[in-house]
């Protein structure tokens, strides 16, 4: 038994399996499918029609549709992942989880695994909408490059979500943080307009979020950029992804310590 608890891979896998089972214990699969197909469609539509109305020659429909197709990932990788700790609180399971000797990193990364798969499916569907409904031209696209962009962005943004999730250990709810970062990416990450439009002091914040590199790389991949041309952006995104994951782990330990010392662990 203790061997299992001390094996991080086993803890990771059982945490991932449990998270998926727990999700579908309350979420009707039909509802999940509706969410999978519906969320990105309306987000892309909203910004595409806004872009049509504003009629800024520098921001094309393609620019907005591709940006939002990739950013639709945020609902899963930021919002859902960020809420992991908050939901453990709501269910009354956070204390049991934290008194277990299991590796924290394995437990919480495992919890996020299903959302990585969910995110990949969400973005794939969103890009299909971009092509079929919003007429984005994929004739020159580098599909392998685009697949790499989606994969790396999903991984990096899930790391970002986990970092935010650590706040949920200390705060009464992680949902507020989740909501803020669900939408702030629309403004900061070059999703709807180039990052250069932002005031200079805001631009460093943009480049601290992996999505910024992802949206730029996705547009290049759709225009047919080779893997070599994408490698700089993807490398930077991976680097930021690892950095936020490490920061997330350190924050997690810190907020766990704070929550234990101040007795706020089960406050929600």
């Amino acid at each position: 038994m203790s061997e299992n608890v001390n094996n991080p891979l086993r803890v990771f896998w059982s945490s991932a399996v449990l998270a998926k089972r727990a999700l579908f214990a309350w979420l009707n699969p039909a509802m999940w499918i509706m969410q999978l197909f519906g969320m990105s469609l309306f987000q892309i539509a909203f910004f595409v029609y806004v872009a049509k109305f504003v009629n800024n020659s520098e921001v094309t429909i393609e620019f907005v549709a591709i940006g939002n197709a990739l950013q639709s990932l945020a609902y899963v990788s930021v919002f859902a992942v960020c809420n992991i700790t908050g939901e453990e609180k709501n269910q009354g399971t956070i204390e049991n989880l934290l008194v277990s000797p299991a590796n924290r990193f394995s437990v919480f990364v495992g919890r996020a695994v299903f959302q990585i798969a969910n995110g990949l499916a969400t973005v794939t569907i969103a890009f299909m909408y971009a092509a079929l409904i919003f007429n984005v031209d994929f004739s020159q696209a580098n599909y392998l490059g685009l697949a790499m962009v989606i994969l790396i962005t999903t991984f990096a943004m899930t790391g970002f979500g986990l970092m935010l999730s650590s706040l949920g250990l200390f705060l009464r709810t992680s949902m507020i943080i989740a909501n803020i970062f669900l939408f702030i990416g629309l403004l900061l990450c070059g999703v709807n307009f180039p990052v250069s439009y932002l005031p200079g002091w805001m631009q460093p914040f943009s480049y601290a979020i992996p999505m910024t590199y992802g949206t730029e790389a996705a547009r290049m991949a759709v225009e047919g950029a080779s893997l070599g041309e994408l490698s700089g952006l993807l490398g930077a995104e991976l680097l930021v992804g690892f950095a936020v994951m490490i920061a997330g782990y350190l924050m997690f330990r810190w907020f766990e310590y704070l929550a234990r010392s101040k007795g706020t662990l089960d406050r929600f």
Binding site: V50, V59, F183, L187, N192, F193, Y197
Partner: peptide, 16 residues
């Protein structure tokens, strides 16, 4: 507040 506020800001940034 955050969603409508951010969305309004995005629209205004689009106008330049």
């Amino acid at each position: 507040i955050i969603a409508p506020f951010v969305l309004a800001m995005v629209v205004l940034m689009l106008y330049r």
